[in-house]
Computed example of a mutant assay.
Amino acid sequence: MKLRLGLPKGSLQEATFQLFKQAGFELTVRSRSYFPTINDPELEVVLMRAQEIPRYVNDGVLDAGLSGLDWIMENEADVVEVADLIYAKNTSNPIRLVIAVANDSDIKTVADLKGKRIATELVRVTEKYLKSNGVDAYVEYSYGATEVKVPHLVDAIADITETGSSIKANNLRIIATVLQSTTKLHANRNAWKDPWKKEKLQNLSVLLQGALRARSKVGLKMNVPGDKLANILEVLPAMKQPTISQLVQSDWVAVETILEEIQVRDLIPALKRGGAQDIIEYPLSKVIP
Rank of each mutant, 00 (worst) to 15 (best):
M1R: 15
K2C: 02
R4S: 11
L7W: 02
P8L: 05
S31E: 15
D40E: 11
R49Y: 03
E52L: 04
P54H: 07
R55S: 13
Y56D: 02
Y56W: 11
Y56E: 06
D63P: 05
A64D: 08
G65C: 05
W71A: 01
A77F: 07
E81V: 15
I86L: 05
N90F: 08
P94Y: 01
L97G: 07
V98H: 04
I99T: 03
N103T: 15
D106E: 09
D106M: 06
D112S: 00
K114Y: 09
G115V: 11
E121I: 06
L130C: 06
N133Y: 08
G134M: 05
S142T: 11
G144M: 05
E147I: 12
V148D: 09
H152S: 12
D155L: 10
D155P: 06
A158E: 01
D159C: 13
T163H: 07
A169Q: 15
N171V: 06
N171C: 07
L172C: 05
R173W: 02
A187R: 04
R189N: 08
A191G: 12
W192N: 05
D194N: 12
K197W: 00
Q202R: 10
L204E: 01
V206Q: 10
V206I: 15
L207F: 11
L207V: 08
L208F: 03
L212T: 11
L220M: 01
M222P: 04
M222N: 03
V224H: 07
G226H: 09
L229Q: 01
A230P: 02
N231A: 15
L236Y: 10
P237Y: 07
A238T: 09
K240H: 14
S245V: 14
Q246N: 12
Q249I: 11
V253S: 01
I258T: 15
E261Y: 09
I262L: 06
R265V: 10
D266I: 07
I268M: 09
P269R: 02
R273D: 10
Q277G: 09
I288L: 13
I288Y: 03
P289E: 12
